[in-house]
């Protein structure tokens, strides 16, 4: 454990909780892509199956359980409890264009050709692109609530901090995982445009709105 990994995990946790609280307090999931949230639930489920096979630490297990629980709670709020507020018309990204190629890639490029390992790889690849339906939705509506941008910032920062963690682990532990590193780079790059808007607009007190 190093500071980048810890702050990355906490940033991830903050993102998940910000989103849950936003939906719960406003009793609405307007502006939130249910498709991205389903993809994240799939990501956590596929990746954390090792909860059943190996134990790493109390921290590791607790975080995994919290992430999975929150992911399903979020999906439940969007598609069941506050379904009436879900903006399905603007959530029109075709997720099969992500899931199918990513599934194929996981079968082709993995560390070990075993079911659990392929599912882990699938989850890493899928996570890197899972935010695309959300970003697509924002580009379609041309705006995002400020609280939604805080969510996206924390979520994007988490993988960015992990990149520093991987540099750290390579130098001090000789550890590197090429699949996670490449996917993490892709994931971070996808947020760059958003990071720019967040810093230049939201942090200066303006609402995030895109030119028509």
């Amino acid at each position: 454990m190093n500071i980048f990994r810890l702050t990355g995990d906490l940033s991830h946790l903050a993102a998940i909780i910000i989103l849950l609280l936003k939906i719960w307090k406003s009793r609405s999931c307007a502006g939130i892509s249910g498709k991205s949230q389903i993809l994240f639930a799939i990501v956590f489920t596929a990746r954390y199956l090792d909860l059943l096979t190996s134990f790493i630490s109390v921290y590791n297990t607790s975080m995994k359980v919290i992430y999975i629980g929150c992911a399903y709670a979020t999906v439940y709020l969007i598609y069941a409890k506050f379904r009436a507020t879900y903006d399905g018309n603007h959530d029109s990204f075709r997720v099969e264009f992500l899931v199918v190629p990513v599934g194929g890639l996981a079968v082709l490029i993995n560390h070990t050709f075993s079911p659990l390992e392929i599912l882990w790889t699938f989850s890493i690849y899928l996570e890197s692109v899972a935010i695309l339906p959300q970003l697509f939705m924002i580009s379609k509506t041309g705006e995002a609530e400020t609280i939604t941008t805080h969510y996206l910032f924390c979520l994007g920062m988490y993988r960015t901090l992990y990149l520093f963690n991987w540099v750290w682990r390579f130098y001090f532990e000789g550890f590197f995982d090429m699949i996670a590193i490449v996917a993490g780079l892709v994931q971070t790059v996808l947020y760059c445009d958003f990071f720019y808007l967040y810093v230049t607009k939201v942090l200066k007190g303006k609402k995030l709105s895109l030119p028509a």
């Binding site: 995990d9 090792d50 190996s54 790493i56 995994k64 560390h111 070990t112 659990l116 590197f176």
Partner: peptide
């Protein structure tokens, strides 16, 4: 390199 089946990150 990678220690297979020992993914200790989240």
């Amino acid at each position: 390199g990678m220690r297979v089946d020992e993914h200790d990150e989240l």
